[in-house]
């Protein structure tokens, strides 16, 4: 039971990172982006490639950091991967979503995002193979937090949680303390008024994709680090991430963060009563519950 709680918080941090980016896109560009979760796969695989590259170029980097199964090379690769994934998100927007947006067809964008998701997921499968991989073959030892009840936590999970929280704090500071953050929130509140006040809308849209892509890349790597890397990461995390945005209320960044943890907890606690085969259905149950009782989200901001 307590082990489920711990695991829920740890995986919740990953959902939260994905959901923050998704909720920003959904709020700014007004469409449910079904290809967002594929950015997690892009991030996970980009980091895999650069980890190999850095380790080959500078073998000392391949050493593990402390008790983590993560190498210095992977730590650097995460940063590169965040940049690459952000660029991928901007590129997809430029190639597909922007052109449909300019014709003013919101629902067609939802539709197009399904097509984009299919293409990205299967191209990754074609390039990297359909099997699973790991960043490191070594099996990291779990730390025993308590013997009775038995609670195990792997160092990688602790690292993932702290890194995710750090990213969220940085995002919070950027949004609440910088001019850029103010303009971003202004656009979210009222795009027309923000433009009159001199905010460059096009730049803000790019910024939203960059933030969403960067966070998604981190989430993808963290998921790969604590589970495994497959081309199906996007497919498997799509519903949990959507559930987190709906729990938090679409458009609410803090709601999405909290929603991520809540969905992680709920999905893990559900395994106490449900056979594990049913876990892919749990996010949908959460969505149904929220829509039945509080459709604007548990942490609804008045703007949701």
């Amino acid at each position: 039971m307590i082990q489920h709680l711990v695991d829920g918080v740890l995986v919740g941090a990953i959902y939260a990172l994905g959901a923050i980016g998704l909720t920003m896109v959904m709020h700014m560009l007004r469409f449910a982006n079904f290809s967002h979760a594929e950015l997690l796969s892009v991030g996970a695989y980009a980091a895999l490639v650069f980890e190999k590259l850095f380790s080959a170029l500078a073998p000392p980097l391949a050493a593990k950091i402390g008790p983590l199964s993560m190498s210095l090379a992977l730590a650097l690769a995460v940063l590169v991967s965040m940049a690459i994934t952000a660029a991928t998100a901007v590129l997809i927007d430029k190639l597909v979503f922007k052109r449909i947006r300019e014709r003013g067809e919101e629902l067609s964008m939802v539709f197009a995002s399904f097509g984009v998701a299919l293409i990205v997921r299967n191209v990754i499968g074609l390039v990297f193979g359909l099997g699973t991989t790991l960043y490191s073959r070594e099996i990291p030892f779990a730390m025993v937090l308590s013997l009775d009840p038995l609670i195990l936590v792997r160092p990688d999970q602790i690292f993932t949680l702290s890194a995710a929280l750090l990213l969220m704090v940085i995002l919070h500071l950027v949004l609440s303390r910088t001019t850029f953050g103010y303009s971003l929130r202004a656009v979210a509140e009222n795009p027309a008024l923000a433009q009159i006040a001199g905010v460059n809308l096009r730049r803000i849209v790019i910024a939203v994709w960059v933030i969403g892509g960067g966070l998604a890349a981190a989430a993808g790597v963290f998921y790969g680090l604590t589970n495994q890397i497959t081309p199906m990461i996007g497919r498997d995390l799509l519903m949990p991430v959507f559930a987190a945005t709906i729990v938090g209320g679409i458009g609410s960044i803090y709601g999405a963060a909290a929603g991520g943890f809540l969905v992680g907890l709920a999905a893990n606690l559900a395994l106490v009563i449900l056979p594990s085969g049913y876990s892919p259905s749990v996010p949908f149950l959460i969505i149904l519950l929220v829509l039945s009782f509080r459709p604007s989200g548990i942490f609804a901001s008045e703007r949701a």
Partner: peptide
């Protein structure tokens, strides 16, 4: 990929 490309 083909189906996705047709849609997009």
């Amino acid at each position: 990929v083909l189906i996705g490309s047709v849609i997009v």
